[in-house]
Design a protein around this nucleic acid. Structure first.
Length: 221
DNA sequence: CCCCAGGCGTCCA
DNA sequence: TGGACGCATGGG
């Protein structure tokens, strides 16, 4: 329990924010996927895209027995495009997803990847086109159980709306804001991020003033 | 009609 | 190094 870095009030700790969110929304049990491969595929498809549209693409892939890297690695690009079309950017995403699948297959699967990735697992993913910091951290946290805090548009928006972070703050600084104040705990990071998405969806619409009903209002500066 | 969604790569100053 | 812009479908 660090001292309060949110507002100067020692009672106002990020852990208290977490407890408040957990009480408001309950355990989220993320990521919504059957296994690590499905999780990673979903992570790529959900970039700047609603999860509802991603689910349609995942259904298409599942029905065609294509919800695995081994299948995607050898599927024709045009077929892959048809399956993932509902999740948008299908030309870009199909190329990137197939390249990722081939890379994973080449290294011998996810368990081999976890052992052999150099210089480390995060860097291995970041080299691939279409995998940036958020997608890489999501994969590490939700597929590999590594304690990295994921920063997405919801998280950034919530932090800035409540004045925890300044408007210009980017990914790395926002990530430090959380990991520097929290115990290194992948289960905590997992649940916390999922809860921040919930608060973002429900009480933090873009280009709008602070929502009066937001459960986090007592943590403002 | 508008804006938005669980980003990222490229380009340009 | 950082801010615009394109990518694309589907929903409110």
């Amino acid at each position: 329990m660090g001292k309060c870095s949110l507002s100067g009030d020692p009672s106002c700790d990020l852990i208290i924010v977490f407890e408040t969110l957990l009480a408001a929304f309950g355990s989220q049990n993320w990521w919504p996927a059957e296994g690590p491969e499905e999780m990673i595929i979903g992570a790529l498809l959900t970039q700047n895209t609603t999860w509802k549209n991603v689910e349609k693409a995942l259904v298409n892939l599942r029905l065609d027995q294509q919800l695995s890297f081994s299948a995607i690695a050898v599927t024709p690009l045009t077929e892959l495009q048809e399956r993932i079309k509902p999740s948008g950017y299908f030309r870009q995403k199909s190329e990137r997803l197939k390249a990722l699948a081939i890379a994973v297959v080449d290294i011998g699967g996810l368990s081999q990847l976890a052992r052999k990735a150099t210089p480390d697992l995060r860097a291995w993913f970041l080299v691939l086109k279409g995998i940036g910091p958020e997608t890489a951290d999501s994969i590490l946290l939700y597929a590999f159980n590594r304690p990295l805090f994921v920063i997405d548009t919801y998280t950034l928006r919530v932090c800035k709306r409540h004045n925890w972070l300044l408007a210009g703050v980017g990914y790395a600084e926002a990530q430090s804001f959380f990991i520097d104040k929290l115990p290194t705990d992948s289960a905590l990071f997992n649940e916390f991020h999922a809860l921040l998405v919930q608060i973002g969806k429900n009480f933090c619409r873009p280009n709008r003033p602070l929502c009066k009903k937001c459960p986090l209002n007592r943590f403002q500066i």
